[in-house]
Structures are given as C-alpha cells and as structure tokens.
Amino acid sequence: MYIYLLDIKFKIDCSFSLKDKREVIRSIIDYARNSLKISSAGLTDNDMRNFAHLGFVTISNDNDKK
C-alpha cells in the first residue's frame, strides 16, 4: 500500500480579507476532492489573509507512474 502526501504553502496576492482567502482555498479543496478524488485540508496560517498552508493525501494499492 502506498500513501502519497503533498504539503504546500503559497501566497494569495488577490486576497484582501479572510473571506477572500477562504473562497480561494475552498475552490482548491473542492477541486481536489471532487475531480482528483484526494483528501485535503487547510493546515495552518488560518489568521493570515495572504498565506495558505494546505495538505493533500491519497492512498493506493499500486505504484503505477503512467
């Protein structure tokens, strides 16, 4: 069994409030869950309006690298 993990921090230039930040993060997380079928969550930097820290994880039985 293989576990794949992605931990990413990035800056959101178009974010002028926490509401703008949540909108951007929500669209990324929804895309990951619905289209890519991977689990994701916001990790830290919740009170900073220009920075985000997201984590993504998925589990697979094979290591197919096509």
Rank of each mutant, 00 (worst) to 15 (best):
Arg26Tyr: 08
Thr44Pro: 02
Asp45Gln: 11
Lys37Ile: 07
Ala41Phe: 12
Ile8Glu: 03
Ser15Ala: 10
Leu5Ile: 11
Tyr2Arg: 13
Arg33Tyr: 11
Asp47Lys: 07
Ser35Tyr: 14
Met48Arg: 10
Lys37Trp: 09
Lys21Cys: 04
Lys19Glu: 13
Ser60Gln: 09
Ser60His: 10
Asp7His: 04
Asn63Gln: 10
Ser60Asp: 12
Phe51Lys: 15
Asp7Asn: 06
Asn34Tyr: 12
Ser27Lys: 13
Lys11His: 12
Ser60Asn: 07
Gly55Arg: 00
His53Tyr: 10
Arg49Tyr: 11
Gly42Lys: 07
Leu43Ile: 15
Val24Tyr: 03
Ile25Val: 15
Phe16Leu: 09
Leu5Asn: 10
Ile28Cys: 05
Ile3Phe: 10
Gly55Tyr: 00
Asp30Tyr: 15
Asn46Ile: 15
Phe51Arg: 13
Gly55Asn: 03
Asp47Gln: 09
Asp45Cys: 09
Ala52His: 01
Leu54Gly: 01
Leu5His: 11
Leu43Gly: 05
Ser15Ile: 01
Ser15Thr: 02
Arg26Met: 08
Ser40Tyr: 00
Asn34Met: 08
Asp20Leu: 03
Asp62Pro: 04
Lys66Trp: 12
Arg49Leu: 09
Asp7Tyr: 04
Lys65Cys: 08
Leu36Thr: 06
Cys14Ala: 10
Asn34Glu: 13
Ser15Cys: 02
Gly42Phe: 07
Ile3Gln: 15
Asp13Trp: 05
Ile28Ser: 01
Asp20Phe: 02
Gly42Arg: 11
Thr58Gln: 05
Leu5Pro: 00
Asp13Leu: 10
